Amino acid sequence: MEVDHRIRVSDGDGETTAGQGGVVGVFFARCWLRLRSVLVGLWCWVAGFARKVGRIAREDPRRVAHSLKVGLALTLVSVFYYVTPLFKGFGVSTLWAVLTVVVVMEYTVGGTLSKGLNRAFATLVAGFIAVGAHQVANRCGAQGEPILLAIFVFLLASAATFSRFIPEIKARYDYGVTIFILTFSLVAVSSYRVEELIQLAHQRFSTIVIGVLTCLCTTIFVFPVWAGEDLHKLTAGNLDKLAQFLQGIGI
């Protein structure tokens, strides 16, 4: 039995016959309509997102300045990796300066200074303790060294983590304790395979100091943002609102 694959469509004058070409045309028309709706929706989303970004930038232009400062600081510390003499002096540890800029750079000068001091001091203390732990574990022989290092890492990491639950430490030194755990664990564990441990610790601490100093110089000398200024503006604004409220109720 032969099957008729044609479709009959009414065009107003009567019934006409459309073949396979008509089906393909309808299919492509529907695909175009769907694609056009997707493109229109995407354009509306992009336009809305652009308006939102513009509004945020207009509300506080210092946000744009802060973004540029972070890019500037990262560019400056990357020079230590690109310049061959500087790279030979610090080695692969130069990347720690880049990491330091990313995690230390804050919106305000005070925030950057606080995180920078926390990171530098925690790195210094953790490095000293890790080198000492390596010297003690090294005296136990090749078999006892990894066991003793694992015990040191377990004890210090557990004690430092528990100290983060103390309100006074959590409020002011939480970031420093986190860096202490990270640095001690990295140095202590790597000391089992690395021969020049003192040199490695020195390079990492030096690059971290370079990253902190780069952040401080950038955030202080390039459009600085002081937390005290924002606090003063917020207090003044609240006082104005309170005065308007009291004036409105007739007091």
Rank of each mutant, 00 (worst) to 15 (best):
residue 2 E to T: 12
residue 3 V to D: 10
residue 4 D to H: 01
residue 6 R to A: 12
residue 6 R to I: 07
residue 7 I to Y: 02
residue 8 R to H: 13
residue 10 S to E: 05
residue 11 D to Y: 00
residue 12 G to C: 10
residue 12 G to E: 11
residue 13 D to I: 12
residue 13 D to H: 11
residue 13 D to S: 13
residue 17 T to G: 03
residue 19 G to N: 07
residue 20 Q to N: 05
residue 25 G to T: 14
residue 27 F to K: 15
residue 28 F to Y: 07
residue 30 R to S: 13
residue 30 R to G: 12
residue 30 R to T: 13
residue 31 C to S: 15
residue 32 W to N: 14
residue 37 S to A: 15
residue 40 V to Q: 15
residue 43 W to A: 15
residue 45 W to A: 15
residue 46 V to K: 10
residue 48 G to Y: 13
residue 50 A to I: 14
residue 52 K to W: 14
residue 52 K to A: 15
residue 52 K to C: 12
residue 57 A to I: 09
residue 60 D to E: 10
residue 61 P to Q: 01
residue 62 R to D: 00
residue 63 R to N: 09
residue 64 V to M: 12
residue 65 A to Y: 02
residue 65 A to H: 06
residue 67 S to A: 15
residue 68 L to P: 09
residue 68 L to A: 10
residue 68 L to K: 07
residue 69 K to I: 12
residue 73 A to W: 03
residue 75 T to G: 11
residue 76 L to N: 03
residue 76 L to I: 13
residue 76 L to S: 06
residue 80 F to M: 09
residue 80 F to K: 06
residue 84 T to M: 11
residue 86 L to D: 02
residue 87 F to M: 05
residue 89 G to W: 11
residue 92 V to G: 09
residue 93 S to M: 08
residue 94 T to Q: 10
residue 94 T to D: 05
residue 95 L to D: 05
residue 96 W to G: 08
residue 100 T to F: 07
residue 101 V to M: 01
residue 102 V to C: 00
residue 105 M to A: 04
residue 105 M to E: 06
residue 107 Y to I: 11
residue 110 G to L: 01
residue 111 G to A: 13
residue 111 G to E: 01
residue 111 G to S: 06
residue 112 T to H: 07
residue 112 T to N: 04
residue 113 L to C: 03
residue 115 K to I: 03
residue 115 K to V: 01
residue 119 R to G: 00
residue 122 A to T: 04
residue 124 L to R: 05
residue 125 V to A: 01
residue 126 A to G: 08
residue 134 H to W: 13
residue 136 V to A: 04
residue 137 A to I: 05
residue 138 N to W: 09
residue 140 C to D: 00
residue 143 Q to K: 04
residue 144 G to N: 02
residue 146 P to M: 08
residue 146 P to S: 02
residue 146 P to L: 06
residue 146 P to V: 09
residue 148 L to V: 05
residue 150 A to S: 13
residue 151 I to K: 14
residue 154 F to P: 02
residue 156 L to K: 06
residue 158 S to C: 13
residue 159 A to H: 11
residue 161 T to H: 15
residue 161 T to N: 13
residue 162 F to I: 15
residue 163 S to R: 11
residue 164 R to W: 01
residue 170 K to E: 02
residue 170 K to C: 04
residue 173 Y to W: 13
residue 173 Y to T: 06
residue 175 Y to H: 08
residue 177 V to C: 05
residue 177 V to G: 04
residue 181 I to D: 02
residue 182 L to S: 07
residue 184 F to K: 00
residue 185 S to R: 00
residue 187 V to R: 02
residue 187 V to Q: 01
residue 192 Y to I: 00
residue 192 Y to S: 03
residue 196 E to Y: 14
residue 199 Q to A: 01
residue 202 H to K: 07
residue 204 R to F: 08
residue 204 R to P: 07
residue 205 F to M: 11
residue 206 S to G: 09
residue 206 S to Y: 03
residue 206 S to L: 11
residue 207 T to Y: 12
residue 209 V to I: 14
residue 215 C to Y: 06
residue 217 C to R: 00
residue 218 T to E: 05
residue 218 T to G: 09
residue 219 T to S: 03
residue 220 I to P: 02
residue 221 F to E: 08
residue 222 V to K: 08
residue 223 F to A: 08
residue 225 V to S: 01
residue 225 V to A: 05
residue 226 W to S: 08
residue 228 G to T: 10
residue 229 E to T: 14
residue 231 L to E: 14
residue 232 H to T: 15
residue 234 L to Q: 10
residue 238 N to C: 11
residue 239 L to C: 13
residue 244 Q to E: 12
residue 245 F to R: 15
residue 246 L to C: 12
residue 247 Q to I: 03
residue 249 I to R: 14
